[in-house]
Design a protein around this nucleic acid. Structure first.
Length: 407
DNA sequence: TCTGGGGTCCTAGGACCC
DNA sequence: TCTGGGGTCCTAGGACCC
């Protein structure tokens, strides 16, 4: 039986959710952004018409579209909406794999016939999502995840693209390799392909295996199969999403700084946020990474693995600050971004499982920072964080608004 | 008020042990 | 004297994803 895999991709998701919630934004150019020195996370189709794209700075976006409305993202709202959308999909199969906050794979192979076939299911899902949430999505259907994902991108917004196995030669192989972005072929790899004269998916599929092998090692085989349209991995069921492997937070400071107290305070805050999430997910970790971006955009992450698994903010901070002192001092350049993450995680001893809901939520959440998350509402903060002196330092330097802390 | 923030996976090389 | 090979763990760095 030919497999039927669908990829459901919500169109301009964050911006569309905002427009759905606020009638005043409908039909208008909207860009969802974070706070501070930030970028456009998602632009509505009205804004895209002016050339506004994800990744642009606010001034850039405004120069292209003076009427643009910037909206501060509300991740909780998007996560909540995602879960409600999942419920619709789960009516048709339990094989619903969360790929990101706005994309899911569905394996309809064994259930679509109950609802009149995969195309009928796709149409019904689109209709229900539109009726329930006022949101549009693009759906791709194919014999594997790669074809489904590439297909979904071919027709946006509100598209439905079907590529059967028998149509691969006609509809998939001629696609330029640039269309393979999102399935493992990024910008750099695409450039390498082009240097080799590989212009289409078919070219990639036909490339001499020894060359792919020599240039890309293990990945070479995968690329060949992607090119042929035969790369195939199973769709996970909704209850089997991967466990979290690392938890981290980073933050771009309002202004680049060499002030160690400011950097230290931010790092402490980030460690507490990481710790709070680790406790929430009932995990502990052994490898602490410190992430620093300097004013010249030079970036590094240094890791240190310790003997015991830890999950407290104080312990994480101790490890992170040790790395900072060893690797970064004395500071040559002002620091632009500071971050910390904990990997090598395991379920907390004494806690049997990482809760399924939490795991799924984490996966959905991983796209963006919890912009609106109320910091530390239920956690005990280290004394040094709550003493007013720290507020004073951060505020005097213009590096933080009190609101963030008092929230 | 140039360039966010959350992740994953793979590779290469060094340390260390047997 | 000079010296193998396998395995594991750890780290840095790069590429990719949304």
């Amino acid at each position: 039986m030919e497999k039927s895999i669908a990829l459901i991709d919500m169109n301009s998701y964050f911006a569309s959710v905002e427009q759905a919630c606020n009638p005043g934004l409908r039909g208008k150019p909207v860009a969802v952004c974070g706070e501070g020195r930030t970028i456009v996370v998602t632009a509505s189709y009205e804004a895209r018409a002016y050339g506004v794209k994800t990744g642009m700075t606010k001034p850039e976006a405004r120069s292209l579209c003076p009427a643009i409305i910037f909206v501060k993202g509300n991740l909780d709202k998007y996560i909540d909406t995602s879960f409600r959308i999942h419920k619709i999909m789960l009516d048709y199969t339990d094989k619903v794999e969360i790929f990101s906050i706005d994309e899911c794979f569905l394996d309809l192979t064994h259930t679509a016939h109950l609802y009149g076939g995969d195309v009928a299911v796709a149409k019904e899902i689109k209709k229900r999502i539109k009726e329930s949430f006022g949101l549009l999505c693009s759906i791709g259907i194919g014999p594997n995840k790669v074809i489904a994902k590439v297909g979904a991108k071919l027709n946006k917004p509100d598209g439905l693209t079907v590529i059967r196995k028998s149509e691969i030669a006609e509809k998939y192989l001629p696609l330029p390799v640039g269309k393979l972005q999102g399935v493992g072929v990024g910008r750099r790899i695409e450039e390498k392909f082009k240097m080799l004269g590989i212009k289409t998916a078919g070219d990639l599929g036909n490339a001499p295996p020894e060359i792919l092998d020599r240039l890309f090692g293990v990945m070479g085989k995968m690329y060949a199969q992607i090119g042929q349209g035969t790369y195939d991995t199973p769709v996970k069921s909704y209850r089997e999403q991967d466990a979290v492997k690392s938890v981290g937070h980073s933050h771009t400071l309002a202004r680049d700084t060499k002030n160690l107290q400011v950097i230290r305070s931010y790092l402490q805050m980030l460690c507490e946020k990481v710790a709070a999430r680790m406790r929430k997910y009932k995990i502990k970790g052994r490898t602490v990474a410190l992430i620093i971006r300097y004013s010249d955009f030079d970036f590094f992450a240094k890791r240190h693995t310790i003997r015991q698994h830890i999950s407290s903010g104080v312990e994480i901070f101790r490890a992170a600050w040790e790395i900072f002192e060893k690797e970064c001092l004395p500071l040559d350049l002002p620091v632009r971004l500071v971050g910390v993450s904990v990997a090598n995680v395991e379920a907390d001893a004494g806690e049997q499982y990482v809760f399924e809901e939490m795991r799924k939520k984490e996966k959905v959440q991983s796209v963006m920072d919890e912009i609106n998350n109320k910091y530390g509402a239920s956690t005990i903060k280290p004394v040094s964080l709550i003493i007013s002196e720290k507020f004073g330092i951060l505020e005097r330097c213009g590096l933080i608004s009190t609101r963030v802390w008092v929230d």
